[in-house]
Design a protein around this nucleic acid. Sequence first.
DNA 1: ACTAAACATTGATCCAGATCAAAGTTAACT
DNA 2: AGTTAACTTTGATCTGGATCAATGTTTAGT
Lengths: 270, 270
Amino acid sequence: MNVLLPYTRRAKAGSLKESIFVNDLDQVVNNLTQVPKFKFDCAGCPIRDRAICSLCDADELEALEKIKFYKSFEAGQSIAIRGDDLTTLSSVVTGTASLMRTMEDGRAQMVGLLLPSDFIGRPGRTTYSYDVTAVSDVTLCCFKRDPFEALMTKTPHLIERLMEMSLDDLDVARDWMLLLGRKTAREKVASFLKMMIKRKSVQVVNGARTVDFILPITRELMATYLGLTIETVSRQMGALRNDGIIDTEGKKRVIVHDVDALNDEAGDKV
Amino acid sequence: MNVLLPYTRRAKAGSLKESIFVNDLDQVVNNLTQVPKFKFDCAGCPIRDRAICSLCDADELEALEKIKFYKSFEAGQSIAIRGDDLTTLSSVVTGTASLMRTMEDGRAQMVGLLLPSDFIGRPGRTTYSYDVTAVSDVTLCCFKRDPFEALMTKTPHLIERLMEMSLDDLDVARDWMLLLGRKTAREKVASFLKMMIKRKSVQVVNGARTVDFILPITRELMATYLGLTIETVSRQMGALRNDGIIDTEGKKRVIVHDVDALNDEAGDKV
DNA sequence: ACTAAACATTGATCCAGATCAAAGTTAACT
DNA sequence: AGTTAACTTTGATCTGGATCAATGTTTAGT
């Protein structure tokens, strides 16, 4: 049996300062300079090119702009609980959030990691299907469901983009199923690091070989993500370090010496 | 390590007669009476009410009817391999197919079980992301990608329905992730039986308590589905039988005595 | 009815990863 | 700089499910 404490235990203990995670350059800059968190309009929006609105033209964007509003959450805060009324649909603008499914006895499985541009909620549903939690400080671009759905019927670009995004999410979920069902602990951890490199589009330092980045989540969340325990994640990180595949510094910094070697450890052919 | 033989080994050995699976009444009737397999038009289509076309009005249906054609596969046959050109999109009309991801060394994970009305392929992709295999004899309603996509841009009902279906698939995949990552073998097997009852909409015999049905897949595919080995699936089926939760007859028939008891074993609250 | 291939069950043993239990680090706040 | 709570690592042991190895059962085709 594989019982993890419910994630809410961590959330209660969270405080603003202690949990600054460095997910991308924008956020680092925000944190360092204490810039007010959501002073942008659509024109200056950091996720304009890949969010739900990315196919929209100027007119459509204007209509969206009229009904949008921002909302922010501190690291560790619950954004929504499975079963909550889904009155608001939103996009992650900055920060990282988790999508989680839990069992009565506390066993928890992360089923999605939400990064900037990812969409929360689904038109046509009236309640949340998952627990959504802010992993780092998070800013959401929100729409009330009714006006958004009304707009959607008039704006094929929105449906098209939402469909693209849903199908991409489906592919990610299914790859993840292979990981959860068939990969070894070492392969799981290597796959996770590989995915971090891919999704964060981390800058490559030494001619596509060495990559240096900051993990956006704790060992506990990694374990929840990978269907493992904290101890196993820790041991596998240690093993990858001993085998010279990676180096670590502090809790969060990871240096991958040879991306190809890491890919081999992940067990995917391509 | 958890190596299963690649599914293709089974496919090669398959022959038509040996693999008649009883998925639903239509198919039983087809098999028994040797009715030609796809003599229907859209008006008489058994999946009209829930397939990709379910929101379409008469005009839209007529346009679809012009470009559709049928294709059938024998049990065990490969429908497509990951990486194949995705020139044809299709809906399952009768039979059962599997969506599979495999690793180089033969480890395989089923990532979707396709039943009548489920859609295969995705607009906007040019290759298959998964191996698709006919589990029973399968009939598909097919569309060439180009004319279908052309039609889709003019027919919001198609996009809307495809989006609904994709989002449903995503929820199924994520529930499955919880199963793969955190459930015990017994819970996995119970969850599978529960899902069979739910998705097949099997007729209830004794006042919502006893349900009697035919498994559409072998122990091997159940194992591939659940991230287990054949032996473990077999032992857990035996354990559920010993504990009086189910009875079995032959390889495929299952009698669930108490659906509520089965639900408890599956480990989901609702 | 018989045969052979496919499929399923059962038993013995093993091992990857869980669990239990400290001890060691890190970093926010005083 | 020191304190403390949160987080991580490391070690010892246990166990659920994998693996190895037969044996039993079903069913298509002769």
